[in-house]
Simulated scan of single mutants.
Amino acid sequence: MIGNDLNPARWRRALAQHGRAQIPEFLHPQEAFALYRCLAEQLSWHLAAGGGDRAWVSARGAYPEGDAYQQIAMRAHDRAQRGHQYLHDCYAPDDARNEDESGGLAIDAVPDSFNSAEFLSRIRMLTGDIALSRVGVQAIRLRPGQFLLPETSTAADDGRRYAYMLHLSPVWRAEWGGLLQSIDDQGDIGETFLPRWNALTVFRLPQRRQVTLVAPWAHRPQYGIGGYWLAG
């Protein structure tokens, strides 16, 4: 599944030096495009909102529309003034499998692929972390007005060692927002990553990071697959 051109040594140096890296052409092109088509055309999405000790996900088949969506979005925007908050669409393949919701979609095969011996071996070489043993997977869609505000995850949180996002929007422009950023201890932006097509952005934890608000004038949603690389 991983592209043949991945050079673990190159990106291992970047991760060791900066704690983050963006790896282009991560998947074979045909597999990346199949995943994009699945996310853009085939999924029944859930809306997720929360932050701190608050977490809410819409029920299966009950994505809020119209005024109901606007009320949830307004609450999320208001709470974003006070700290960590997120508002985005999601689809968890493992949850769908447990609820018999999956239908043989391309995304439903990703957890098994990302937790295969071959994939785990490649990310251990990439990071130099031989303790990595599992990968969490969630599909993400960011529509205009959606965002993920700064979050800090410690290395001890459920064994999380690295956060990742595989970007699956064929075209994305910086002025549309939805940029993935690292934030240092002084609150300054450390580095900004454009969600380039079929690129994998990786952050070593703990490290504050955010996805900026997707602008109202963005022509299309942003798509990706994200989660954590975990030990134990």
Rank of each mutant, 00 (worst) to 15 (best):
S44W: 06
R122V: 03
Y162G: 06
R13F: 03
A62F: 00
P24E: 06
G224A: 05
S44F: 10
A14G: 04
M1A: 04
A59Q: 04
L87K: 07
P111K: 13
D67L: 12
D53R: 14
Q138K: 15
Q71M: 05
S153P: 10
L205S: 02
L132F: 00
F203A: 00
Q181C: 13
V57N: 00
Y36L: 07
Q42D: 07
L179Q: 11
R82Q: 12
D78F: 05
Y162F: 04
G145C: 09
Q42T: 06
H18E: 06
F26D: 04
P8H: 08
T127C: 11
Y162N: 00
G232V: 06
I189C: 15
I140L: 14
A55T: 02
D108E: 05
A32G: 07
A92W: 15
D129G: 09
D158R: 14
R208N: 01
A155I: 02
S153E: 01
A218M: 06
L142K: 10
P93F: 14
G3W: 14
L166E: 10
A14V: 02
F26K: 15
G227I: 08
L148N: 09
A139C: 11
L47H: 11
S58D: 07
I23N: 12
A92C: 14
D100C: 15
G227R: 12
I72W: 02
Q17L: 05
L126E: 01
R173T: 08
Y164F: 05
V57R: 14
F193L: 14
V135A: 09
I2R: 15
V214W: 03
R122S: 05
H46D: 07
A34S: 13
D78A: 04
R196V: 04
E41D: 03
D100W: 14
F33D: 07
Q181T: 04
G103V: 11
A48C: 02
G159R: 14
M165T: 01
L168S: 08
A40M: 11
I72Y: 02
A218K: 10
G66D: 09
L39A: 10
Y162D: 01
G187T: 02
Q181N: 10
I183A: 02
A49V: 01
R60D: 00
L149C: 09
R13P: 04
N4K: 15
D158A: 13
Q22C: 08
S182F: 06
F203M: 05
A40K: 15
A9G: 03
G128W: 11
G83A: 00
S102R: 14
P93E: 11
E99L: 05
D78R: 13
F147R: 12
G224E: 07
T192G: 14
R20H: 03
A131H: 03
D188E: 03
W229G: 05
R220C: 08
G83H: 01
E41C: 09
R173V: 04
Y91Q: 06
D108P: 08
I72L: 13
G66Y: 01
R160Q: 12
S153G: 10
V137P: 02
Y223V: 07
C90F: 06
G190R: 15
H84R: 12
H77C: 00
R124D: 05
S58N: 10
A76N: 03
A62N: 04
L213Q: 09
I107E: 01
V171S: 12
G52V: 08
L180P: 06
S116Q: 12
A139F: 11
R220E: 08
V202A: 11
G128E: 07
G226F: 10
C90H: 00
A215T: 00
R37K: 12
S113I: 04
G187C: 00
